[in-house]
């Protein structure tokens, strides 16, 4: 059976959801999400350390989406907003949150993404620190504003492995999701 975005979204928003969104990932949306989450965490008296880590991870994941998302989705039949992405934040355990982002990527990028995440997942804390410092000091910021530090930073701050999936969609696209435990 082929991948269905609505079924997927319903399915992953079943847990103890703090916030779930699907649609355009814009700068204004990022502001709204950050504000809403910050407010909820403060009200829920989550400890400062977890709050900060979650906030940082959210900033990086949302901005990763924002910078890398496809502007158009040629051949995707469902009615999707431009810059379509999904975000689900749920409470996994006491003081532990699960952040999932998803977006359509061109199939040819699959290998690059897989290798990049696998490489980061395989590094120790010290190796991540070295990689972070190397990229910080040696690589220029790309036109997209990223610079390849986002995932390394997430891995460093969470100390946990990132989980990803690629769901085949059509000839041109796959749906890529990334789950981060904070």
């Amino acid at each position: 059976m082929s991948f269905n975005i609505n079924e997927y979204y319903t399915d992953i928003s079943k847990g103890d959801v703090l916030l779930a969104y699907k649609g355009s990932i814009t700068s204004a949306l990022i502001n709204e999400v950050l504000e809403a989450v910050e407010e909820k965490l403060e009200r829920g008296s989550e400890e400062g350390k977890t709050r900060k880590k979650l906030y940082n991870v959210l900033v990086e994941s949302l901005q990763n989406l924002y910078h890398h998302i496809e502007e158009r989705h040629d051949g995707i039949e469902e009615q999707l907003d431009p810059k379509f992405g999904i975000l689900v934040i749920e409470k996994a355990n006491d003081h532990e949150y699960k952040v999932t982002t998803g977006n359509f990527v061109v199939s040819s990028k699959t290998k690059f993404l897989k290798e990049k995440i696998d490489k980061i997942n395989a590094l120790t804390k010290d190796e991540l620190k070295d990689m972070y410092k190397f990229i910080l000091n040696h690589q220029k910021i790309s036109a997209k504003g990223g610079g390849g530090l986002g995932l390394v930073d997430i891995a460093r701050k969470t100390g946990k492995k990132m989980i990803y999936n690629f769901y085949p969609y059509n000839d041109k696209y796959v749906f890529f999701d990334l789950t981060i435990l904070v």
Binding site: L136, G146, L149, D153
Partner: peptide, 12 residues
């Protein structure tokens, strides 16, 4: 209080 990775290069 917070800075993102894109700022980290500018701070450098």
């Amino acid at each position: 209080e917070y800075f993102n990775t894109s700022s980290s290069k500018c701070i450098l």
